[in-house]
Simulated assay, not measured.
Amino acid sequence: MSTFARIDAVSSLVLDEETLPDELGPDQVQVDITYCGICATDTHNYTSGGQIPPATFGHEWTGTISRVGASVSSVRDGDRVIAAVGPACGTCAMCRAGHADHCDLSFAEANGVTLDAPAHGGFASTLVVSERRVVPVIDGVSDVEAALVEPTAVTFHAVRRARQSLGAVVVVQGAGPIGLLTAQHARHAGAGRLLVIEPNADRRAAATALEFSDVVAPGDTASAWIDEVTSGLGADVLYECTGAATLLKSSSEMVRRGGTLALLGFPMTDSQISYGDWQVRELTVIGSLAYTHDDFLGAMRAIADGSVQVESLHTATIGLSELAAMLDELDSGDTSQTKVLLDPPRSGE
């Protein structure tokens, strides 16, 4: 038997049990979950009553392979693995058109809508998924670090898409987990000067602990920093990591003419922008959602060699019975948590 959490109503979840299959499909693997991170998508799913596919409720998981199907060749029993998406399939419409970085199958896997998607996510003791959905953990990455590879891959993907130039003046708006990871990737990618903007004092402290020297609250101080460092031109690249729809216009105004606005935070409401302003200033606006298979490998290597520090983002570990209360706390905004990991009961416990 396996225990898992599922959403049953708005801001409500229940713990349920399922009987594991006697035999796995030929390309399936069974993963005993070690940790599963909680992210903003999980909170939105919880407060919306489950409007996001159930397989994504708990998508930042790591665990150990406990069974494999007859055709599985990339992993074996006892391997530590992380949740991922498979390589470009080569046969979907996007792949056939030469756009393998936007493979339809990989994108569907990231959003939990493939035909073989599990009925629940990683807030569970055990999960059965396709072999495509797991990647072995490389040497030098701890279990806690492995649980943070998925958001690290999200931010790795975004910085890679932004094509940030060496020596660029970079602004990161928001110092939650996504902002702190983005800032580290931007630094690793060769940012010349980097400003982190964050209203929450605890999160500013977290950014400072990661050795970012320019960390300020929103407002005049941030504007003055950009003006001084760029001689009034504006940032070369701004990574918007809050997902606050009201900040989109003001974020774009911090970017220089010809600069790049990279969007990571996902707004739950519509935004208003000045289309004409973006056009006159020839902004490059880049949306970024999820990742490719390659991003997971790059993210793990960055963690393993110390270029990106993730363990300091881990502020709490909870059990399944504490999940609803933690989601309520995270949704309230009145929390000191950065990244919370769920440690579920093991299968059979």
Rank of each mutant, 00 (worst) to 15 (best):
M1C: 12
S2C: 07
T3Y: 12
R6E: 15
V10W: 03
V10G: 05
S12R: 15
E18V: 13
T19H: 11
V29K: 03
D32Q: 13
D32M: 09
T34Y: 04
C36H: 04
C39S: 08
D42N: 12
H44S: 12
T47F: 03
P53F: 00
A55N: 06
T56Q: 08
H59S: 08
H59G: 06
W61I: 06
T62H: 06
S71E: 08
R80K: 12
I82F: 02
V85C: 13
C89H: 00
T91I: 15
A93K: 01
M94S: 15
M94H: 09
H102G: 11
D104I: 01
L105S: 08
E109S: 08
E109K: 13
G112E: 00
G112I: 00
H120Y: 13
F123M: 09
V129D: 03
R132K: 14
I138W: 03
D139K: 10
A146N: 01
R161C: 02
G174I: 03
G176V: 04
P177C: 13
L180H: 06
T182P: 07
T182H: 10
A183P: 03
Q184K: 01
R193E: 10
L195W: 04
V196A: 06
I197V: 13
N200G: 02
A206T: 00
A206F: 08
S213W: 00
D214F: 02
D214R: 02
G219S: 01
I226C: 07
T230Q: 11
S231W: 08
G234M: 03
V237Y: 15
A245P: 05
K249T: 14
S251P: 06
S252N: 10
R256P: 05
G258V: 13
G258I: 05
A262C: 14
L264G: 03
P267H: 12
Y275E: 09
G276Q: 09
D277T: 05
R281H: 15
T284F: 14
T284W: 13
I286M: 08
T292N: 10
F296M: 07
L297S: 13
A299H: 01
A302D: 03
I303M: 05
A304R: 04
G306E: 13
G306D: 11
G306L: 14
V308E: 04
Q309L: 09
M326H: 11
D331Y: 10
T335H: 15
T335N: 13
T338N: 05
D343H: 15
P345K: 12
P345F: 07
